[in-house]
């Protein structure tokens, strides 16, 4: 088995006991790392070592380890999810690093994403934004046959592209303003494009943007860092689409767009 790797690395990791305490960067050695390991498996190895020594293991969020749950969230060497494009941290492998390299690992940084412990942050702001209006108000049952709604393939595909967002928060982490616009706009776009989303289109945009602002995210300067770092390559076009819907809702629509 190709277990025994030959890479020796230095890790600089943010350690913080809980939300209330101060944190700091702590240096660890990660020796005998195999290039076939995933980044998180490398951290597993470091943690096993720490536990054997009786030290608190490094806490980081992770779950599916196949790039879809959106749980993993490490800011590695100045980039969310590390140096490779269009993947999550769990899909990053150690062969993307050089032997002897120093790797800096930090949590997502944003006022709206407070650190919970070490590298794990609280992303419930994203949930609250979606609770504000990220849905089509239909009850279970009593809906038309699925094929009664014809949707042009290109529109369905575009909506799907927006819907691929995994809610990891890399867009916020990458943005110099800690803005959540890419996330929020992807969620708004999915419904804004589909016929099912039309009845609530404007009230939804209004409600979700209002909640986004309340959470304390920064505003967008269209730098595109979010798009470049998004593991699902969500397009900046979504932001334009959201702006259009929001401003139409607030400035031009005659109906009351304020959701109850």
């Amino acid at each position: 088995m190709s277990t025994n790797g030959n890479m020796n690395l230095t890790l600089k990791v943010w350690r913080q006991k809980n939300a209330q305490s101060e944190g700091s960067m702590v240096t660890y050695k990660a020796d005998g790392i195999s290039p076939d390991m995933s980044f998180l498996e490398m951290l597993d190895v470091v943690n096993e070592d720490l536990i054997h020594k009786g030290d608190d293991p490094i806490h980081f969020d992770h779950d599916c380890r196949e790039g879809i749950c959106g749980m993993c969230s490490l800011y590695i060497n100045g980039q969310p999810h590390g140096p490779k494009r269009a993947i999550t941290t769990c899909q990053l492998h150690m062969r993307s690093f050089k032997d002897g390299e120093t790797i800096t690992i930090e949590p997502w940084r944003a006022a709206a994403f407070p650190v919970v412990k070490d590298l794990a942050v609280d992303r419930s702001a994203f949930d609250r934004i979606q609770q504000a209006g990220g849905y089509v108000s239909v009850n279970t049952g009593g809906v038309p046959d699925a094929n009664e709604i014809a949707i042009p393939k290109v529109i369905a595909d575009e909506a799907f592209n927006s819907a691929t967002c995994i809610g990891c928060g890399a867009c916020v982490a990458a943005c110099k303003n800690a803005s959540a616009m890419l996330f929020v706009s992807a969620k708004i776009s999915q419904f804004a494009l589909l016929p099912q989303g039309q009845p609530e289109r404007y009230s939804r945009a209004q409600a979700m943007v209002a909640q986004m602002d309340e959470e304390g995210f920064g505003s967008c300067t269209n730098t595109g860092a979010c798009e470049a770092e998004c593991p699902k390559e969500i397009s900046l076009t979504n932001i334009g689409r959201m702006n259009n819907d929001y401003l139409s809702a607030k400035l031009f629509r005659q109906e009351d767009v304020n959701r109850g």
Binding site: K153, L194, Q196
Partner: peptide, 22 residues
């Protein structure tokens, strides 16, 4: 059969054909 109807009504973007149907 009801599940598909329900999911489409919620806005689940299932794959579609050029005619717009599922």
């Amino acid at each position: 059969v009801n599940i598909i109807d329900q999911c489409v009504a919620q806005g689940v973007p299932f794959a579609r054909e050029y005619g717009g149907l599922l």
